[in-house]
């Protein structure tokens, strides 16, 4: 339980820091195109973690 939580939280932290650094480096007019990509990455990570938490009983 605790290992799963730790992995989930560190993944979230990594995605957030990487995406904010990337959005700093990108020019300003590309921000609107980059935002959905960030959201997709977070969404994929959260759905993946949910399936790992609950195993195959989810489907």
């Amino acid at each position: 339980m605790r290992g799963g939580l730790l992995a989930f939280l560190s993944g979230l932290l990594l995605i957030c820091i990487l995406s904010s650094v990337l959005s700093l480096l990108l020019p300003g007019e590309l921000d609107d195109e980059f935002l959905p990509l960030m959201k997709m990455a977070i969404g994929i990570w959260i759905i993946h973690s949910i399936t790992i938490f609950f195993g195959h009983s989810l489907f």
Partner: peptide, 10 residues
């Protein structure tokens, strides 16, 4: 995290 990146709030 939600303060660092306000477009992804938690």
């Amino acid at each position: 995290l939600s303060r660092l990146n306000p477009s992804i709030p938690f």
